[in-house]
Amino acid sequence: MLFQQIINGLTVGGVYALIALGYTMVYGILELINFAHGEIYMLGAYLGIILFGFFTSVGLTSHSLALSFALTIALSVLFCSAYGFTVERIAYKPLRNAPRLSPLISAIGVSIFLQNYVMLTQGATDKVFPDLLGSAGFDLLGARITYLQVLIIGVSFLLMLALHLYVTKTRMGKAMRAVAQDKVMASLVGINVDSVISVTFIIGSGLAAVAGIMVAMYYGLVNYFIGYIAGIKAFTAAVLGGIGSIPGAMFGGIFLGLIESLGASYISSEYKDAYAFAVLIVILLIRPAGIFGKSTEEKV
């Protein structure tokens, strides 16, 4: 029972971590809570269903399941990245020098817009993702582990590893870290801050798209408001791990997934969604800058 809950928690936690990475990267660079990030994840889930449906209707799925699945993921990531890029350009970039709350309010606007955009174009009812792997799986230590769970956990960890390598090893990754530390200095040494910000949004959105598709497969159902709640949880995860820190977001996501899964089975499943909020409030009360965040004193 406990082991089962841990596996379930890891699965959900991996997804939270993937979304949390987008929050943490954007916050690290722009100090903006990208409220719309949850909606990008929701777009990813929808795109997964839409594109897979499209490939099924043109007969590609029956021809080669693997190919159509790979294409679905690739195109979803592409579209979500494009959405992330566009959102940044339209809603945040003009507000780079505005008062602090302006981009946050704009982000809330984007979030509401995208939710209703999907509701109006795709309908308000649940969308179903075709059951590809079913409940096939294996038993381990008295727990039932499905192949889908293995896939989700595996993909999450691989992507996190890839991101970590990207940020620490590549030129663009180093530029991202430089911009996160000091935008002015970074631009003085010749880094194009705008394009670094764009790349950050593109990568974060791509990760969110993968998370969206995996969740759509895991629960089988998707609705236009899943982004809001998942977004809040992922944000909590990012704060848990210290916002701005990439390993922190991974840790926070998994930790939150475990809390939720254990809380739901041992305390009460009705308040499942409230745990994230409660954890968030408690953390911020104890450490106003997040667990690993450093408190900054304003210069007078």
């Binding site: 709350l101 809040i232 968030l280 911020l284």
Partner: peptide, 16 residues
């Protein structure tokens, strides 16, 4: 709490 953290905590309070 600083501005945007405060926003999120009030949001969490509302949801709870």
């Amino acid at each position: 709490l600083r501005g945007d953290y405060l926003a999120i905590v009030t949001l969490g309070f509302g949801e709870i």
